[in-house]
């Protein structure tokens, strides 16, 4: 192993059976989150459905005939067997998923990948930095932290969206803000006429958050450029790279390391990631076209 190599961890939670075969689920509810983003709530069409998931893991969602896409799980890990996926309708498959109605069938494979370090965060301050739809894969971690609130010290969620209309889970954010047991700060890149909140990139929220850098676990999800600047600022604050966790995205088609598409240096994002501690990806993070 060289200094430039990313250390790979075996994922003991590989799904059993034929991993390429979708398991039928039924759509229970379709919730419109923003103008282009919606959440599917699904239950297994027949028992037992997929195995329990870790916050940060993803499933492959199959829309009949249209194709399959990897989507992070965005619901509460304790709500098994209900699965929530928040999806932006941007391509052929996500648009087909968007057209689903209550009672429709969907095929799911998973759960795949590594999760957020919720165990490592016990007795630590937790800083969560989310950009845009990057909040969706972090929501299960938030549910988990709030479910076991006593185990963690200060929790901060710093969230940046493009515009006020892009803010995800608005009502939930408002409710959590009223709970006094976590700090939530939101900023937008462009505010409209009615916006009186923060304007600017998500890193501008960091100086206002209270955390002990040496005793903090940071979880980051959003565009790569956003995470790059968040990492820079967190490290300036004194948070060591092995305490900063990023969720990396690449083309994924199988979820089991067979198709090869998600390779990121020596890592297969689908089984070694998508969540990596920053020290493991530092040599290639932010490099063009890796």
């Amino acid at each position: 192993m060289t200094a430039h190599a990313i250390e790979l961890a075996a994922n003991p939670r590989a799904p059993a059976g034929n991993p390429m075969l979708p398991v039928p689920y039924r759509v229970e509810r379709v919730r419109r989150e923003t103008y282009d983003t919606f959440t599917l709530e699904m239950v297994p069409a027949q028992a037992p459905g997929l195995a329990a998931f870790l916050p940060g893991q993803f499933n492959m969602l199959y829309a009949f005939g249209a194709g399959e896409v990897p989507i992070s799980i965005s619901g509460d890990p304790n709500d098994c067997p209900i699965l929530l996926h928040t999806i932006r309708a941007v391509g052929a498959v996500t648009k087909a998923l968007c057209a689903l109605k209550r009672g429709d069938m969907i095929g799911l494979r998973g759960p795949f990948g590594s999760g957020w370090p919720v165990k490592q965060a016990v007795d630590q301050d937790v800083v969560i930095l989310a950009g845009g739809i990057g909040l969706a894969p972090l929501r299960p971690a938030l549910y988990h932290l709030l479910h076991d609130r006593r185990k963690y010290r200060r929790i901060s969620l710093l969230y940046g969206a493009r515009t006020p209309e892009d803010i995800l889970y608005l009502r939930e954010l408002e409710r959590w803000r009223g709970q006094f047991d976590l700090e939530i700060d939101v900023t937008v890149d462009r505010g409209g006429a009615g916006w009186r909140g923060n304007v600017g990139v998500v890193t501008t929220l960091l100086p206002r958050a209270t955390f002990d850098p040496a005793g903090t676990i940071a979880m980051l999800c959003g565009p790569e450029v956003m995470m790059r600047f968040c990492v820079l600022d967190l490290r300036k604050c004194g948070v060591p790279p092995q305490r900063i966790f990023v969720s990396v995205e690449r083309n994924m088609q199988c979820g089991t390391g067979f198709c090869g598409h998600c390779q990121y240096g020596p890592a297969f994002i689908c089984k070694d990631g998508p969540v990596f501690s920053f020290d493991r990806v530092e040599p290639i993070f932010g490099k063009a076209e890796v």
Binding site: Y62, G65, G260
Partner: peptide, 10 residues
């Protein structure tokens, strides 16, 4: 070389 792609067709 083992890379493959998945094609869903109707």
């Amino acid at each position: 070389c083992f890379c493959t792609t998945i094609e869903d067709v109707t």
